[in-house]
Deep mutational scan, measured.
Amino acid sequence: NKFNKEMRNAYWEILHLPNLNEEQKNAFIQSLYDDPSQSANLLAEAKKLNDAQA
């Protein structure tokens, strides 16, 4: 299933973003579980936030 793979990839990438705190990571990961079809968008948002907090 495409979403499972996308979701897993997004999950791991978000988990390893160095500039997000636990609360931010948890919020993105919760959103992933709530709507796996948004994995790519959530990952993009997480990366933007990560870069902004660098």
Rank of each mutant, 00 (worst) to 15 (best):
A10L: 02
N4R: 01
F3K: 01
S37V: 10
N9Q: 13
I29A: 09
E23P: 12
Y33N: 02
Q53L: 12
N41Q: 07
L20A: 01
Q38K: 14
Y33R: 04
S31E: 05
S39R: 15
I14Y: 00
A27W: 14
D35F: 07
N9D: 14
N4L: 06
E45K: 14
S37Q: 05
N4E: 08
E13M: 06
P36F: 07
N4Q: 04
E13I: 14
E22F: 14
Y11F: 07
K48F: 10
I14V: 04
Y33Q: 04
L42A: 08
L49T: 15
H16E: 06
L42S: 07
E6Q: 03
N26R: 15
K47V: 05
N1V: 06
E45N: 07
L49Y: 10
Y11T: 03
E6I: 02
L32D: 00
A27S: 15
M7T: 08
K47I: 04
A52T: 09
Q24W: 08
N9K: 15
W12A: 04
F28R: 01
M7Y: 13
D51R: 09
N19A: 12
W12N: 11
W12Y: 11
L32P: 00
A27M: 15
S31I: 05
L17P: 00
R8W: 15
D35V: 05
E23F: 14
K48V: 11
E22G: 14
K47L: 04
F3M: 03
Q30N: 08
Q53K: 03
K48P: 00
K2Y: 04
D51E: 11
A40V: 15
N4T: 04
L15F: 10
I14P: 00
N26L: 14
Q53S: 07
S37P: 06
S31K: 14
D34S: 10
F28M: 08
N50F: 01
A54P: 13
P18S: 04
W12V: 10
E13R: 15
N21S: 11
K5L: 02
Y33L: 07
E22I: 06
A46F: 01
A27G: 08
L20M: 05
Y11R: 10
Q38S: 08
H16K: 11
Q53A: 06
A40I: 14
Y11I: 15
E45Y: 09
A54Y: 07
Q24P: 01
Q30L: 11
Q30Y: 10
K5S: 04
F28H: 04
Q24V: 05
K48Y: 12
F3Y: 08
A40D: 03
A40Q: 14
E13F: 13
N26I: 10
A10P: 00
I29S: 14
N9Y: 15
K47E: 09
Q24R: 05
M7W: 15
Q30M: 09
S39F: 15
E22N: 14
N21K: 09
A40P: 05
A27L: 13
N41R: 05
A44E: 15
D34V: 04
N41E: 07
E23Q: 14
A44G: 06
L42Y: 10
R8N: 12
N21V: 13
A40Y: 15
I29F: 15
A52W: 12
N1S: 03
Y11A: 07
K47Q: 07
Q30P: 01
S39L: 12
Q38E: 14
P18D: 13
A44R: 09
L20V: 08
L43N: 03
W12S: 04
L43H: 04
A54V: 10
S37G: 05
L42K: 12
S37A: 09
L15A: 05
L32Y: 01
F28W: 06
P18H: 06
Y33V: 05
N26T: 15
I14R: 00
E13K: 15
I14Q: 00
L42T: 00
K48S: 10
Q24H: 08
L20I: 13
K25A: 13
L49R: 09
N50E: 04
L49A: 10
E45Q: 15
K48E: 12
A52G: 15
P36M: 05
L49G: 05
K47H: 04
N9R: 15
K48L: 14
N9S: 07
L43T: 07
A44V: 12
L42E: 03
L32S: 01
S31R: 11
F28G: 01
L43I: 04
D35E: 09
L17M: 15
L49S: 08
M7E: 13
K2L: 10
F28L: 13
N26A: 15
L15S: 07
A10K: 02
F28V: 05
L20H: 00
K5I: 04
L20R: 00
A54I: 06
N21L: 07
L32R: 00
M7S: 04
L42Q: 06
L49W: 08
Y11K: 07
K48M: 06
F3W: 01
A44N: 10
N4D: 15
A40M: 13
K48R: 13
R8T: 10
L17V: 01
D51V: 08
L15T: 10
N21A: 10
A44F: 14
N9I: 08
N41I: 08
E13G: 14
D34K: 10
N26Q: 06
D51L: 11
W12D: 10
N4V: 06
P18W: 11
A27F: 11
S39H: 15
L49H: 07
N9P: 02
A52R: 11
E22T: 11
A46W: 01
N41S: 09
D51F: 14
D51S: 12
N21T: 09
S37T: 10
I29H: 08
S31N: 08
N9T: 15
P18G: 09
N19D: 05
D34F: 12
L17E: 01
Q53W: 07
Q30S: 15
P18N: 12
S31T: 11
P18I: 10
N4Y: 08
N9F: 13
K25W: 01
E22Y: 10
N1D: 15
Q30K: 11
K2N: 10
Q30W: 13
Q38L: 11
E6H: 03
N1L: 04
N50V: 04
N19S: 06
N1T: 06
A27H: 11
R8I: 12
K5D: 12
A52I: 11
A54K: 01
S37D: 06
E6D: 14
K25P: 00
L20K: 00
Q53E: 11
L15W: 05
L43E: 03
A46K: 00
Q38F: 04
A54L: 06
W12Q: 11
Y33I: 06
M7A: 14
N26S: 12
Q38N: 13
D34W: 08
F28Q: 01
N41W: 05
S39D: 01
L15V: 13
H16D: 05
D51P: 03
L32F: 02
A44K: 14
D51M: 09
F3E: 06
N50K: 02
K2R: 09
L15Q: 09
L32W: 04
L17S: 04
I29D: 00
A10E: 01
D51T: 15
A10G: 01
N4P: 05
Q53P: 06
Q24I: 04
Q38P: 02
L43W: 02
L43F: 03
Q30G: 08
A10N: 03
R8K: 10
N4M: 03
K2W: 12
N26V: 05
Y33A: 02
